[in-house]
Design a protein around this nucleic acid. Structure first.
Lengths: 258, 258
DNA sequence: AAGTGGTCTAGACCACACA
DNA sequence: GTGTGGTCTAGACCACTTG
């Protein structure tokens, strides 16, 4: 039950607790609608003050994984499979994985290049620097759904040109292999007509509507690390968002209709 | 300097403080980049504990109005004019207004109808109930940019069929005329090919890419109040979002490129 | 070294839900 | 009434920034 809390480490205790709770939820140990121990009990069990336990809980409430009801208790959100991913920087592959939708990835190109001028400027590197260029297709249910192009600043990821991106995801490599702290991204979406090259990869007619997404990914330090262009079949992809009139926006996510 | 804090009232002190700070920022008393007193000083001045002052500050940081930098202090965000709109349920017209982009609205249809089956089910009303049907075009810079269809539950808004929606916005009517508490909305976006009817209104070729948006708007009470369908010219519209890897999503907004 | 925000504690009282 | 989360206090120590 009790996690190992490093009281001397650099990570705040409340974040360690939040991480531990996140794991208990995603692993199914705390299933949907599970009622957590009261804040007081939890604090005692963890050996921390109630305020610290509360702060950890607040993080997960913010992410939509927990719901608190005054006078009743704290519960695992019934939407924890959708919500937490919806409110974070999640890749489409991670979204598909969380929904247990099987997919396949094919690598069309993978090489180290000098970035085109526009890419260099967005990634804040020199034209003489090296970036990984990756071009992939992602198949869902046997049909090509997404065409992806990625440009990754190479000096942060030595050897990345040799990783097998048929079997590994890009974010996985950046976070787990290179230990990068991916922090946030700016995404823009646009309805476009498929050009011949895109149409042929996605197996649709030229001029068919596609959702185009551009993403600029930043590290915690504020440095841009990756730029990507995605084209998604318009007839198979939807973007959905929950917005509040007052306060903070809640979520944005892409979905593949049933 | 010091606000009147009702210590006996139902509103928590930290919210009263947050409200007071919000006002000082929007009124210009605390201009951009203004450095607030330290948390300790602020707490003493307000006669509260540091924790309470901190919680008030955290609200405004969350809304993007304040920025805290460890070791330096708390500052009024330079983007406080843009951010709050970006993080809320904002209509495209409100977004245009905030950016001082002039636009015009033309009403194509406005009548009370019995809702189609699908609309009735989404709005949770009976097929025999009445809804306002509104069909409009919004011109920006002389070109038709958005085609809008709205279905509004009519029994909450008596007389709405007589409002001049050329001069008034729909949200304005719902909030100011009928006093409705618009709380949140679910929006989904899709890249579509313009059908002949849409193409003719937006003055584009049939089959051109358009961004389609469906919105279901809810009151604070949880009741759906309005359903809308929007078609935006794909070549003139972009959707952009800032997403965080951990924690909450920050913002989502639609933009009309330069 | 001084000042700032970030974290944590150990209490307290209140408002709400439920039996 | 009992248990829960919501708020608030008055301290403490640490990590970061700046002079």
């Amino acid at each position: 039950m009790i996690p190992d809390l490093e009281r001397a480490g650099p990570r705040p205790i409340y974040q360690q607790i939040a991480h531990w709770m996140r794991h208990r939820i995603t692993s199914g140990l705390w299933p949907e609608h599970y009622k957590l121990p009261s804040e007081t009990d939890l604090a005692v069990e963890l050996g921390v003050s109630r305020g610290t336990a509360r702060k950890a809980i607040a993080e997960l409430v913010d992410e939509g994984m927990l719901v608190q009801i005054h006078g009743r208790g704290t519960f695992v959100s019934s939407k924890h499979l959708e919500q937490p991913l919806a409110e974070r920087l999640v890749t489409f592959s991670e979204d598909l994985i969380s929904k247990r939708i099987p997919f396949e990835t094919h690598v069309l190109e993978q090489k180290i290049i000098h970035p085109p001028r526009e890419v260099a400027s967005l990634l804040a590197v020199a034209a003489a620097d090296e970036v990984l260029y990756l071009k992939r297709v992602r198949d869902v249910g046997g049909i090509a759904l997404i065409l992806l192009e990625n440009y990754v600043v190479a000096d942060r990821c030595p050897g990345i040109q040799d990783i097998d991106f048929t079997r590994h995801r890009l974010f996985e490599a950046l976070e787990d292999v290179y230990g990068l702290n991916l922090d946030w991204a700016q995404r823009t979406f646009e309805a476009q007509a498929a050009d011949p090259a895109t149409a042929s990869v996605l197996d649709i007619a030229v001029g068919s509507p596609v959702m185009y997404m551009e993403q600029l990914l930043y590290l915690q330090s504020g440095t841009p690390i990756e730029l990507s262009n995605l084209w998604l079949r318009g007839d198979r992809f939807r973007l959905s968002a929950t917005v509040k009139r007052q306060g903070t926006a809640r979520s944005i996510r892409g979905t593949v209709p049933g």
